[in-house]
Amino acid sequence: MNLFRLFGDLSHLASIFILLHKIYTTRSCRGISFKTQALYVAVFVSRYIDFTYISVYNTLMKLFFIGSSCYILYLMRIKYRPTHDPSIDTFRVEYLVGPCVLLGLIFNYQFTVIEVLWSFSIFLESVAILPQLFMLQRTGEAETITTHYLAALGAYRALYIPNWIYRYFTEGTVDPIAVTAGLVQTGLYLDFFYVYFTKVMQGQKFELPA
């Protein structure tokens, strides 16, 4: 464990608390893509069912991410269902899941169910934010709290990059699948980060140019 990874994980934790806070305080899941949230459940379930014991920290985090992502689906689907507008959440997820299944079958460290699922989850995570970003693009604006959620989520994978560089020099390990997918994942946030830093951080509303 190094600081980059720790702060990455903390940023991931923070993003979930920000999202819950947004849903609770506005009593609404407006502006949140149900599809992206459902993809995260698929990501965590397929990655964390390996039951390999690493550490208490690792196990607790895994349980938390599975539990909280399912809980968010419950909030969106049942508790605050009327506040979700499916007509703007129109990204076709099958275009993401299909290729990720294929990539997982082709690129993995061992051709076993657990390892293929692990690779699949890494690839799927890298693109799971697309329905959310697509929705943002369609509406052209977002509540500030929603942008904080996205920024924390983006910072999580961004912080994993210096972590991998650090691990390469200190442990001599490289995980090419995670690194490739992680770079793609972080790259997808670049446009968002640009608007976030130039507008939201300056106290302005998140609005995309028409």
């Binding site: 991931h12 550490s55 985090m61 692990w118 001599g172 995980d175 090419p176």
Partner: peptide
Amino acid sequence: TEVPVGHDEL
């Protein structure tokens, strides 16, 4: 270089 074993990252 080797691949980290056991996927210790989240």
